[in-house]
Computed example of a mutant assay.
Amino acid sequence: MAIIRINDINDDRVELFTKYNEAQLYHYFEPKGGAFIAETPEVIKRALDRGAEPLAFLVEEKAFESDVVQSLLRDYLEEIDVFIAQLNVINKITGFNLTRGVLAACKRPNLPEAGDLLAGARRVAILEDVMNPTNVGAIFRSAAALGIEAIFLTHPSADPFYRRAARVSMGTVFQVPWTYFIKDSDYMNTLHEAGFSVVSMALKEGAIPLSAPELKAQEKLAVVFGTESTGIKDETIAKSDFVSIIPMHNEVDSLNVAAASAVTFWELCK
């Protein structure tokens, strides 16, 4: 390991933090996976505990000596480069004021197979084309807090390891088991074959309230949330066992998908 001082964001030695956008990082090691950037000690610790392999750390100068950062780096000080820079330099990289003082570039851990996650779960969430990283991160945080055992995403959905999603989730994207369904696969069939009943959260005529006892009675239940703009696909709803809504007041028709997920997880997992 080397401790290296950086004074310029154009220094090639920190190009992982500066040169690549998140889509490019996703393919950084193709065909053997990619990389991602994690920020704040709590998020980074959860990423490392999840099995992500660190490639380098970028630490704000004043934060480097703190007990929190030293504890985070302790197991890697002999093998991973640690770049140190003043806060104004790091802020040029992140685009905002980095208050917790540390970034980590990591290799992406391998994702499990969907069937393996379904085999051991009773309550799971499906994100169908949820493309806003903030919403994805918030859904993961609610899932971790309220008892969802796994999350499955369709490929248009935002990557949970994107920096914003991981930050909003408080690192729980590295705690809640998750994976993508095979692109363009019939994931509803996959869920049914694994013994799950499926409920789509959609504003449709005939939808039952979330508190309906038949939902809680299901031994295995998968809850589908749709894209922020158009909702769940019609073909998904047609194949669902249930369609449900959260009853609203004051002529509000629905909640943001992140808020709706928290209410749904609380009701169906308690």
Rank of each mutant, 00 (worst) to 15 (best):
I3N: 08
N7L: 15
N7W: 04
D8A: 11
V14A: 09
L16Y: 01
N21H: 15
E22M: 01
A23V: 02
Y28G: 10
F29G: 06
E30H: 11
A35S: 01
T40R: 03
I44F: 02
A47T: 07
D49V: 14
R50N: 10
R50A: 04
G51Y: 08
A52V: 11
P54G: 04
L55T: 05
L55R: 03
V59N: 06
E61L: 13
A63N: 12
S66M: 11
D67Y: 05
V68N: 05
S71E: 07
S71G: 04
L72W: 01
L77S: 03
L77Y: 00
E78I: 14
E78G: 09
E79A: 15
F83Y: 14
F83A: 09
L87C: 07
V89G: 02
G95K: 15
F96C: 13
L98E: 03
L98Q: 04
L103S: 07
A104C: 05
P112Y: 00
A114K: 04
A114T: 02
L117Q: 10
R123Y: 07
V124Y: 04
I126P: 00
L127T: 10
E128G: 01
E128T: 03
V136P: 01
I139H: 13
S142D: 11
A144L: 02
A144Y: 01
L146N: 07
L146V: 14
I151W: 13
L153R: 00
T154L: 08
T154H: 00
H155A: 12
A158M: 03
A158G: 01
D159P: 02
F161Q: 12
G171F: 09
T172M: 05
W178P: 05
T179C: 07
I182M: 12
D186Q: 11
T190Y: 08
G195A: 08
F196T: 10
F196G: 10
S200E: 06
L203I: 14
I208S: 06
P209T: 15
P209A: 15
L210S: 02
S211H: 07
A212G: 03
P213R: 05
E214C: 01
L215T: 14
K216S: 08
L221Q: 08
A222H: 00
A222P: 03
V223G: 01
F225A: 00
E228S: 15
V243N: 08
N250E: 13
E251N: 13
E251Q: 12
V252D: 09
L255E: 03
A262P: 10
L268W: 13
K270R: 15
